[in-house]
Simulated assay, not measured.
Amino acid sequence: MKTLILVDIQNDFMPGGALPVPRGDTIVEVVNGLQPGFGLAVATQDWHPPGHASFASQHPGRAAFESVELDGLPQTLWPDHCVQGEWGAKFHPDLDTRAVQAIFRKGVDPRVDSYSCFYDNARRRSTGLAGYLREKGATELYFCGLAAEICVFYSLRDALDFGYPCVLIMDGVMPLDEREYEKARDELHTAGARLMRARDVFCEIPG
């Protein structure tokens, strides 16, 4: 079954949010248009407890976007964002979630960040998404969401490691950093992911 994965399409990653992805809101219409064609659609949410260790506010003397080591892992310090239950953690109000059959939350461990929608960055905690996809009979995964070179990239890379054929929907993602996105996109393509636009995806679904 062809499956659409909506990664972190949340208020804090939109213009006006705490960690805005430039033009992040422009993907919402694309994502809404894609959903009806898929047999399965799932969504993920960044879902941080207050005072998460990845927040710059928890590191006196440090600023957002600086790099530190956190429990042995490299960590970019972020503005406080996607805090559980707050406005910023909610999906964008224009995102149509009627076709979304399950939501998987990540970043819930207060000491470990989570970019991939499958695991935390230490790979100690699974979100449960991998098992869910197996149970549902997913055969090919199509990714959209925010930010392209971070959570979408790491999610897609893990999906490739699981052996799934994967598609990056290029007009269904936006990056924080365009140069980093170019490198991430090239890496994914080299690893076997297909890069497609939404109009071309429509030619393949349903399937």
Score class of each variant (00 low, 15 high):
P49D: 02
P49N: 01
P50N: 02
G51E: 04
G51I: 10
G51C: 07
H52T: 00
A53W: 08
S54I: 14
S54H: 04
S54T: 13
S54A: 15
S54D: 04
F55P: 01
Q58R: 14
H59M: 06
P60Y: 07
G61L: 09
G61P: 11
R62P: 14
R62S: 07
A63M: 08
A63V: 12
A63W: 01
A64I: 15
E66Q: 14
E66V: 04
E66W: 11
V68P: 07
E69I: 07
E69G: 07
L70G: 12
D71M: 12
D71R: 05
L73T: 08
P74F: 03
P74Q: 03
P74L: 06
Q75N: 10
Q75R: 08
T76C: 03
W78A: 11
W78Q: 02
W78R: 07
W78P: 02
P79C: 05
P79D: 09
D80P: 04
D80A: 12
H81W: 00
H81F: 00
H81M: 01
C82M: 00
C82E: 01
C82A: 05
V83H: 01
V83I: 04
Q84V: 00
G85N: 06
E86L: 00
W87V: 03
W87A: 02
W87Q: 02
G88R: 01
A89G: 03
K90V: 00
F91N: 07
F91V: 09
P93A: 11
L95V: 10
L95H: 04
L95C: 09
L95S: 07
D96I: 03
T97M: 13
T97E: 01
R98Q: 11
R98W: 05
Q101D: 09
Q101N: 06
A102H: 14
I103G: 01
I103S: 01
K106P: 04
K106L: 05
K106N: 09
K106M: 08
K106H: 12
G107F: 00
G107D: 00
G107S: 02
V108R: 15
D109F: 06
D109M: 05
D109V: 00
P110G: 10
P110Q: 07
P110K: 10
P110R: 08
V112Q: 15
V112M: 15
D113M: 15
D113R: 13
D113A: 15
S114I: 06
S114R: 04
S116I: 03
C117K: 01
C117W: 02
F118Q: 10
F118L: 13
Y119D: 07
Y119V: 14
D120K: 06
A122K: 14
R123Q: 14
R123C: 05
R123T: 03
R124K: 14
G128D: 13
G128K: 11
L129E: 12
A130P: 11
G131C: 10
G131F: 09
G131T: 03
G131M: 09
Y132A: 13
Y132N: 06
L133S: 06
